[in-house]
């Protein structure tokens, strides 16, 4: 059986900087993998390459056994992978419901025109990330950081991914919101969703993942269970030592 996501020998250079250095890892279907590393280690850059927003210099990215490096971002999303952004990027003048609507749209202009929006599904997604009924008509300018992250989750879920990449899901959230998002991730894991999760909040991350990999300056320095990775000498030196 092929992995849900298989990254092999990935290299990304920004001029002289090697942001991803011969990185390989794989993610089985239904598995949840934590990606940790200090600021600037290259975690977000890995996400951008998987989504096709950045082109790798070399290496392959396979989704369910199919090489996706030649696909555009929308094509990759249709193939079943979707991400959230570290800095939420909502559509500022649209309501929460309309933001989610964009995620739900088929990439087909005829269907966009002739079939109506699925407002019930919009509502369902909004409620599932913890919005209330009244929030549906609010615009992002009226929302707090926590709500923006929830919106980011909901819009990503709307694209019906099989593999979700979550970038700093807990940044800027209150304890209550962290619990809410954690519950959501746990219930999606039960339903078989595959996750790759980046978070600086390690205590919050631990229960959400089966395994972890740690990177530093684009290079993998440890791989294994969460506690193995945390106890790794190199990880403690680079990551915990700095923090």
């Amino acid at each position: 059986m092929s992995a849900a996501l298989q990254v092999s020998g990935l290299v990304k250079r920004f001029g002289g900087l090697v942001a991803t250095n011969d990185l390989s890892f794989s993610l089985n279907e239904g598995e949840s993998l934590g990606l940790i590393g200090p600021n600037g280690a290259g975690k977000t850059t890995v996400f951008s390459q998987i989504m096709g927003e950045l082109r790798q210099n070399s290496g392959t990215i396979e989704l369910f056994g199919k090489e996706i490096s030649a696909l555009s971002t929308p094509q990759r999303i249709r193939a079943g992978v979707s991400r959230t952004y570290q800095i939420p990027r909502p559509f500022g003048d649209m309501s929460v419901a309309e933001n989610i609507r964009v995620g739900l749209m088929p990439d087909d202009i005829r269907r966009m025109i002739f079939s109506p929006p699925d407002t019930e599904r919009e509502r369902e997604l909004a409620l599932s990330v913890g919005f209330s009924e009244e929030d549906l008509d609010r615009t992002p300018t009226e929302l707090a950081m926590g709500d923006l992250r929830k919106l980011e989750m909901a819009r990503t879920m709307a694209t019906a991914p099989k593999v979700m990449l979550l970038d700093e899901v807990f940044a800027g959230l209150t304890t209550g919101e962290i619990a809410q998002i954690s519950d959501l991730i746990q219930s999606m894991r039960k339903d078989g969703m595959t996750f790759l999760i980046v978070s600086h909040d390690l205590p919050a991350l631990e229960p959400l993942i089966d395994r972890a990999i740690a990177i530093e300056r684009g290079t993998m320095i440890a791989e294994g269970s969460f506690s193995d990775v945390m106890n790794d000498k190199a990880v403690q030196a680079s990551y915990l030592g700095g923090a």
């Binding site: 989504m51 927003e53 555009s72 999303i77 952004y85 990027r89 964009v102 819009r155």
Partner: peptide
Amino acid sequence: MNEESVRGSG
């Protein structure tokens, strides 16, 4: 409003 997010929505 945000072309990247539209692409990121598929």
